[in-house]
Amino acid sequence: MSKKINLPWNSLGLIGVLIVLVLFFSLMSDYFFSTVTFRTLVNQIPALTVIAVGMTYVLLVAGIDLSVGSVMALSAAVVGVLIVDFNLPVVIAIVAGLFVGLSFGVASGFVSAHWKIPSFVVTLGVLEIARGGAYLVTSSETKYIGDPIAFIGSPVPGIGVSAALIMAVAVVIFAQWLLSKTVFGRYMIAIGTNEEAVRLAGINPVKWKVAVFAIAGLLAGLGGVFQLGYLQSADPNAGIGLELSAIAAVVIGGTSLSGGRGSVVNSFFGVLIIAVMQTGLAQLGVSESSKRIITGLVIIAAVLFDQYREPLAKKLNRIA
């Protein structure tokens, strides 16, 4: 037996769901199956994408981060205020915003891992703190930035997709690589599987868990920057309920809520599924009530589908 080749069969179920959705919406609407629609669609997802990447890591170590939406809003608010009110260069403002996200992640991770407080509780607290912070720095007003930040969210000439999307996809690829090819990735899976065993193997799980939350915080900050580029304004109310969308995307991607199993790439597919749903239903002009019901059903259906994915993947691997 030689090295095992990892075929992407375990993404197959998700790709199947995506294709079904795209086919369905293409049949239902004249305008859905078009470059413009897809370009619009993918330019909307960078923030959710990077936040879902962070959430994947957190769920992998059997934690949860409810604060990502608020931290995103706060980071964006800090960037916005620094540009508008303090006239700082955009790059410096962005670095400051990312630093804010990182700090909140480190704080959540440290408090929950070091003092062994469930991350649910800690990040619930941070959710409120960061939201309050966002109101504080913006004086509860939307900060309009305009052109200085627009380059992040605007389509790159000749490609049609935004710089934010390109960066988000790069983050997905890098994060997947980190997960499957490095010691850090292996430790995350091990900690999510059996933290006590990891500790007794002479590895300090606290350190690694803090790192995971730090990454989630940093990516929430990056999501804030992407959001800024997209909206060209810092909205203190941005990202309310975003943590649930991120968790939904990650869970659709087959990451286990109890830790130890997950894939960044599949979380990205989860994000795409959610985005296709939203775009398709909006283009059809489906009523708000039906939208909610359908979205809920698709989340459950995709997760059910995931239950059958593993046996299917095995079967296909045998054939291959």
Binding site: L231, N237, G241, A282, Q283
Partner: peptide
């Protein structure tokens, strides 16, 4: 007529998305 709304009053990003999607449908 195509009618769309956002999830909660303050979800700016979703409203921007909706307008873009409407632009995509010409």
């Amino acid at each position: 007529l195509i009618v769309n709304g956002i999830r909660n009053e303050s979800d700016l990003a979703q409203q921007v998305s909706l307008i873009e999607q409407m632009m995509a449908t010409q």
